[in-house]
């Protein structure tokens, strides 16, 4: 960088600056091709594994917790609430340390990838359960009453009538959590999982190319998040209920 500034000064023109920048980029091509990108692809693969496994499991577990909190019996409600208090209240970093460094001392060795996966699922599900709980509670009581009046069990009414509607309402929150998951998956490197950020950090330290390595990683995340955002938007469009814009509905009256 210092070289390029000096060179610009020496040439005394903008043309010289661009000439040097181009030279510098060209000289870096082998580094990108042979070192940085292969490492980042490997890291990306690990990140994708973490995200793709965490998202559905964290969602389903979150749904289970939310349904337990809204419709469960008193002890079930209590347990579900305890789960949320604990895993939402505990910083993810601390949770990962406990899983990776702490559990072996009581004889449970999860390994680095599994520690990260379990930590992410616990955290992701706790947050998702809150979005889903809010959505479940926002569905008019009459919907479940109508289901039950037709002879459905409470579980059937919740599964076929309340949950499908609640999922649509929770979608913005749950997708937010999904985007967030893509980014906090970078924390896996603290438990020795070489995912995208970890891979970049190793290369950056080794070749002293911090700017290049992390700029490239930033672009990687940006691309993944953009693709995810487009996917989520499609999902929202697909499941939008015709005739309903936002949460419109008649106020339910009666005892």
């Amino acid at each position: 960088m210092t070289d390029s500034i000096n060179a610009t000064g020496a040439d005394g023109g903008l043309g010289g600056f661009f000439q040097n920048l181009t030279d510098s980029i060209i000289s870096q091509i082998p580094f990108w091709q042979d070192v940085l990108l292969p490492a980042l692809w490997d890291g990306l693969w690990v990140t994708m594994q973490l995200v793709v496994m965490t998202a559905p499991l964290g969602f389903l577990l979150g749904l289970l917790i939310a349904v337990s909190r809204v419709y469960g019996s008193a002890p079930v409600k209590w347990l579900a609430q305890l789960y949320v208090i604990f895993f939402r209240g505990c910083p993810l970093l601390v949770l990962l340390f406990i899983l990776y460094f702490g559990l072996p001392s009581v004889g449970i060795v999860l390994g680095s990838f599994m520690s990260a996966l379990v930590g992410f699922i616990l955290c992701n599900s706790a947050y998702n359960s809150e979005y889903l709980r809010g959505a479940l509670q926002s569905i008019k009581r009459g919907q479940l009453l109508a289901a039950r009046s037709l002879g459905m069990t409470k579980m059937q009414g919740v599964m076929y009538v309340v949950v499908p509607q609640a999922l649509r309402r929770a979608l913005p929150g749950v997708s937010n959590e999904f985007i967030y998951l893509i980014k906090y998956s970078s924390l896996a490197y603290v438990v020795a999982v070489i995912e995208l950020t970890g891979a970049a950090k190793i290369i950056a330290s080794k070749y002293f190319m911090y700017f290049e390595a992390f700029a490239a990683v930033g672009i990687f995340y940006l691309v993944i998040v953009t693709i995810a955002t487009i996917g989520i938007h499609r999902l929202e469009m697909k499941y939008a209920i015709p005739g309903v814009s936002g949460a419109v509905g008649k106020v339910s009256k009666g005892h």
């Binding site: 009459g142 109508a146 509607q165 649509r168 009666g254």
Partner: peptide
């Protein structure tokens, strides 16, 4: 015992 509600309570989705 079929029931019809004041607010219809059709399943919105």
């Amino acid at each position: 015992m079929g029931m019809v509600f004041q607010n219809f309570n059709l399943f919105d989705h």
